[in-house]
Amino acid sequence: MNTETYWSIFINASLVNNFVLAYFLGICPFLGVSGKMETATKMGGAVTFVMLISSLCAFGIHALLVAINAPFLQLISYIVVIASTVQLVEMFIKKMSPALFRALGIFLPLITTNCAILGLALFQTSKAYSLSQSLIYALGAGTGFTLALILMAGIREQLEFAEVPNVVKGTALTLLVAGILSLTFMGFSGLG
């Protein structure tokens, strides 16, 4: 059993060990959809949502796998259960709240096999968090992801107007900015 307080789990997951900038998880969406502020916000919301669901799933699966003594099935069952649960929830949202579906919908299937999601499930298991701790951890990680994505989108919107040499344009520039962002996030170390 892990005895970390909720507050320290949240700060750790969102700022100190930011999933994107310190653990390099979810780099693909980070580089891919950070072009516009609006999409970045929606993507962040969708990722946080999926993280909460998968955290819940992972907690249940882990308990089950420990009970039947089959740890080698961990990876396979995590990815299958998480992917199908997200699919189910997506159908549910589509039926219940079309507005929410339009906001998050297109991103949901994209992020089910995102490394940030699976990473979260694996980390919470290895840290032996309780159910409530896991959910706080998922919330923190999602917040951190959203924060990094929004910061990046803000910078990239400004960069549209900057004159950069042709060679630097594209992914290289985004990575350079990400490096600087990662440096600034190091200032949070020691906070958690």
Partner: peptide, 13 residues
């Protein structure tokens, strides 16, 4: 971590 971003950016450059 920052070094990872910078190194990859430089290789891409």
């Amino acid at each position: 971590p920052a070094g990872g971003f910078f190194t990859l950016a430089l290789w891409l450059l």
